[in-house]
Design a protein around this nucleic acid. Structure first.
Lengths: 315, 315
DNA sequence: GATTGTATGTTTATGGCGTACACAAGGTGT
DNA sequence: ACACCTTGTGTACGCCATAAACATACAATC
């Protein structure tokens, strides 16, 4: 706890406190940072199951118990590892000014639709892909997930950024939270599937194709199942969809539909986002070369939006 | 492997073979079924992490090693447990005739949209909820998931049923697989979150509220994050959405949009499903008391569908 | 300079886990 | 009656996390 949040409160006292209070007398070989780094390397290579205090200590050339002078236990070490790694996606490209005021003040321009940049969907998708990339670098992150793990500063910062991305959609607070949690859980689930395959492969030394190939006899029993058989024969397993991209697209489509339904219900001012999909039905609509961007994909949808608006006004 | 698929091929030889080939000479106290049942009970109570060969053996009044006469190892035991438990959702209510021809022959009436019963969405949702209920009864199922675990007969049967539910939507084979995998993964992820909370609570003896309450000081640092703070103050955390219901709705919405887009593109005959949502935009539409059910929620959407159809015909 | 305190690293020990191996016992085939 | 084969047992090994006592080295203090 105190390790994750090392008392950044009083910014003035840090310089004196850190020097005067900490350095007493020590051989100074080990270090929390070194331990965490070594543990991350080890987990990257062998997965979270392959992470043991012994191995971390060995890798550093110390005894097992020496680690316990710097870290309370394995669980807390994993907590620290997670937050250390989560720092990689802190303020990655830009759109933020100084990092001081993370959310960029939605609560000021929040006329229930204040949007900017590429729209909430683009941002949320970017965050999801970012998280996905991170989990490809550090697969054990997916295994280390779970409630009750207290979030570190970097985790909270990322959470804040994701929330800010969908906070301007007009969804209710609880819905905003649900959306962010949903996307986060999806990324984790997808990563978990990947890491489990990799883990199994590493542990058994057999590639996925070989393993399933060796169980060919199992597939022969599937002839009793007509749908599986048909999908197999039609090549559904030969050219599978990209699981992550497919799932994320469906997920965001579903969220977008909710957003659109909400705004169709309680919307008044139509100065909403500038996404390039029809506000009514979600099909993509190309921007005209010049002039005001089209809001609907067709007059039909414009008409339908008008009807719904009028219906909402006079209940 | 042979334990999961006990050679059901030659149905005639089972009676003689089972008696003549197997029973040789034994004290006959233990039994694979008893072991699996005891293990399931134990895992239900203590989670998969609390499942050990010793405890299973103790519960049965045998020594640890006696189990290894019937089961190769812990992992295979878990495989057996999963399939044993998955039997609970085998052919639950009906809609199947004899189980012989599982999918009910979509491939015959599959004029690329042959639908029946309550529609694919209702069926898929029912399966998801069924899986969710199962995981509430046996939380360790979520922990035991993972690739490379070879599926048992019950798992395959359930998989077949889910595939059959979405096979008639006109999606491509790979898309059908992706949809089913996506929904399955969602259920698992949701269950995993639940079981992790329960596990943490059981292990530490502290309820979730207490635990987070004890870390109130952590929340005080969140004031630097404007969006989190605002959502907190607006009560988003006080009345959270039902995570499973919310996520499932978004997911199915997203899938439904894909289905609708596909059928809007390559459809010719409009004898499609009888779901009660607008074919164009997905908003619910109530059935009229008498007469032909309405296909669109408004003339606007009907018009839009017509335009798209015509556009697709003359490229 | 000697003393004391403390941060740090080591040693040893405990209890749990999965499971390999050798052995004991009892029923079944010949 | 004999051998065999199935089943259950006892012991042992190596791994894991970590508690407790011990050893060391430096800083501050007397």
């Amino acid at each position: 706890m105190e390790l994750l949040w090392p008392e950044t409160a009083t910014a003035t006292a840090t310089a004196t406190d850190a020097d005067g209070g900490a350095r007493r007398g020590a051989r100074q070989g080990l270090d929390l940072d070194r331990i965490v780094r070594a543990a991350v390397e080890l987990a990257d290579a062998e997965g979270l199951a392959g992470l043991s205090m012994r191995k971390v200590a060995d890798r550093l050339g110390f005894t097992t118990m020496s680690l316990y002078r710097h870290v309370p236990g394995r669980d807390q070490l994993v907590d620290l590892m997670r937050d250390a790694v989560l720092a990689e996606l802190a303020e990655p490209p830009g759109t933020h000014d100084g990092g001081r005021d993370g959310g960029c003040g939605e609560d000021r321009s929040e006329g229930r639709g204040g949007e900017r940049g590429e729209g909430w969907r683009g941002r949320l998708e970017a965050f999801a892909r970012q998280g996905w990339e991170l989990r490809r670098r550090h697969p054990w992150l997916a295994e280390a997930r779970g409630v009750r793990h207290l979030p570190g500063p970097n985790a909270v910062a990322h959470y804040e950024r994701m929330l800010a991305a969908v906070a301007g959609t007009g969804l209710s607070p609880s819905e905003v939270l649900a959306v962010v949690n949903l996307v986060g859980k999806f990324v984790d689930a997808e990563a978990l599937q990947l890491v489990e395959a990799a883990e199994a492969e590493r542990r058994s030394g057999v590639s996925d194709e070989e393993w399933w190939g060796a169980r060919q006899s199992l597939f022969e029993r599937f002839e009793r199942y007509p749908t599986i058989t048909r999908l197999w024969e039609e090549g559904g397993y030969d050219h599978p969809e990209d699981s992550f991209a497919f799932g994320l697209a469906r997920l965001l489509d579903g969220v977008e539909l909710l957003v659109r339904r909400r705004s169709a219900t309680d919307a008044r001012d139509e100065t909403r986002d500038e996404t390039s999909v029809c506000r009514m039905c979600g099909t993509p609509v190309e921007r005209p070369a010049s002039g005001r961007p089209r809001a609907y994909c067709s007059p039909a949808c414009r008409q339908r939006a008008y009807r719904e608006r009028r219906a909402a006004e006079t209940p």
